[in-house]
Nucleic acid binder design. Sequence first.
DNA 1: CAAAAGCCCTGACCTAAATCAAATATCATG
DNA 2: CATGATATTTGATTTAGGTCAGGGCTTTTG
Lengths: 227, 227
Amino acid sequence: MKKKYAINDVSLFQGLPEEQLEALSDIALKRVFQKGEEIFQAGDVAHGFYVVITGRIKVYRAALSGKEQIIHIWGPGDALGEVPMFQGSTFPASAQALDASELLFFPREAFRQLIRNEPDLGMNMIAMLSGRLRILVSQVATLSLKEVPQRLAAYLMLLFNSQEDKQTLQLDLAKGEIASYLGTIQETLSRTLKKMSEQGIIEVKGRQIRLLDIDRLEGLASGLKQL
Amino acid sequence: MKKKYAINDVSLFQGLPEEQLEALSDIALKRVFQKGEEIFQAGDVAHGFYVVITGRIKVYRAALSGKEQIIHIWGPGDALGEVPMFQGSTFPASAQALDASELLFFPREAFRQLIRNEPDLGMNMIAMLSGRLRILVSQVATLSLKEVPQRLAAYLMLLFNSQEDKQTLQLDLAKGEIASYLGTIQETLSRTLKKMSEQGIIEVKGRQIRLLDIDRLEGLASGLKQL
DNA sequence: CAAAAGCCCTGACCTAAATCAAATATCATG
DNA sequence: CATGATATTTGATTTAGGTCAGGGCTTTTG
């Protein structure tokens, strides 16, 4: 079904079990907006929040100069207005459709009701959000504190630790994607992998990586050793 | 009563019925920290979370090299250390008092008991966490994509936009702290401020900054222009 | 008020990693 | 299988910003 499919891609609901996604999709209302149409205004009471299915939504505030200040452009999978909605306050900014767009609307009362009847859903959402915060905190720290070889080593350790096979690893992303996840570029990643190979820490065959020296890799990841 | 009064200003507890606030205040413990005192360390097992009543708290991660990345600065009404309440058992980052501060401590089990009975508290928790998720997502993007002048410009714009006075700004943090928040070091921040001054964008007098060319600053922040 | 401590600025230097350019390898598709 | 498209590697070069060192300011405290 269309709505449920869309809900899987909402970052706010990531990782929730199937049945809870279904419950959520039951209370969602589809709303269609024309290009240029207002979705809500700053100061409006947030009686619900929106999730973008298709199109792009501009969230903005009128700056003092009269000029408008764009705060975000949200696209498919992004939620808007969820913070004031959960809090029961007003929208701090206005939103307008940049394209013809389809959104899902989650009414506050229905949502409350849902959580009341199914406390697990609330707790699950809280747990999922907490888990993602933990990851993001590490990512922020990693980006500014560690150099590329450390970041890469930490990434590889993570992959190795989250699978059975402690010898060989199949990369799930293109190397360019991994580079960008690690906050660097393809070329640098390639050179770093090469250095690790030269030092006998790993062996790289396309997307397949064989772990040769786990201690060394761990040392690199923790920042105690260097390439 | 002191504790209950303080609890009213906590955004996490907003909109809750009187009796819930009382229940919350019953389980809260007041803790006082000196300026510079550690509240918890990344990796410590968490037995509860904190809410700031007075003072400012720095949440950060430190590298072995000594360099630190500030993740948040929280003030009165903000919560900290809530991630391990619902996911995992340890704090993902460290926290230290920037001023002499009073915090309320909410023990893990007692709080989880409360949230189970009060769906609105769950909603507020979701609101807080989803707000934080946004902050961190944009912090990751900022750190990995933007260069220091852009990050600094964006930071200054944020400060200017969140206050009345659009001319002069009083920095609330030591410059070294700002550097660490922006993912760089004191020296680089100092040089960047100097460049901006030389170009007539701002004027720096100690902790006071006067905005001379808002368009230029905005251009820098958005990455369209360069220093 | 004087001394100490912390904070901030500046210069010289260095290095990690980005950029630019090009070659090669891998993959997908008619 | 040929052909283009996409991904990856490699080398040469540049540069942002980190490191180290020294000095001036400012704030705190006895």
